[in-house]
């Protein structure tokens, strides 16, 4: 099979049962994406496919050979952090860090959804959407943090959203 991940083309031989998450972690040594539940319930495996956030544990690799896949490794590097990575560091948006790659990929996708004007469950009106802390929490509810770093995660995302606006 062939994949385009973080702009690099990979050719690998894998079973058609392999999830995108296992492809990344077990076959390509891209271990930034984490496995929390393997059933779509925690968000630790969140990556971006064609710019949209999805759960890589509930995706078959074989179905995504022609997509543009971005993982936490593709967002920034230790020398050149993505603004969300930098904000998570400066706000202490984690304790153990296990959920963090998923949180950051999810936040990238979420801010893009917001730019497109997508409403959420807590939006009072479906027409105009503002970003506030309730909106951030609702839109990020697919990412569970076992350490409960939520307040600092919200702070980090709020900062980056404000800088982008």
């Amino acid at each position: 099979m062939h994949f385009t991940i973080n702009g690099t083309l990979y050719q690998v031989e894998v079973d058609n049962r392999v999830s995108l998450l296992d492809l990344l972690r077990e076959h390509l040594a891209l271990t930034g994406s984490k496995k929390g539940c393997d059933h779509g319930q925690c968000g630790a495996c969140t990556i971006l496919i064609n710019g949209r956030r999805i759960n890589s544990c509930l995706s078959l690799a074989v179905m995504h050979q022609d997509d543009d896949i971005t993982t936490i490794e593709g967002l920034g590097s230790p020398e050149d952090l993505h603004p969300l990575q930098a904000a998570f560091v400066s706000h202490d948006g984690y304790q153990c860090g296990y959920c963090t790659p998923g949180q950051i990929c999810s936040a990238v996708g979420m801010l893009d959804e917001l730019k497109k004007g997508w409403p959420s469950h807590v939006s009072p009106s479906l027409r105009d959407v503002d970003l506030n802390d309730d909106e951030i929490s609702e839109r990020m509810s697919g990412n569970i943090c076992r350490c409960s770093a939520y307040p600092n995660i919200v702070d980090a995302i709020r900062d980056v959203a404000a800088a982008q606006a």
Binding site: G43, R52, I54, L58, G109, S123, L126, R139, S141
Partner: peptide, 23 residues
């Protein structure tokens, strides 16, 4: 859908998570 079928938008947005709804 947002304009004329608000009940449908609202039901969808009340389900699952952002990641799951994308797929």
């Amino acid at each position: 859908v947002r304009e004329r079928y608000e009940v449908l938008s609202r039901a969808l947005l009340a389900g699952a998570s952002g990641q799951l709804r994308n797929k």
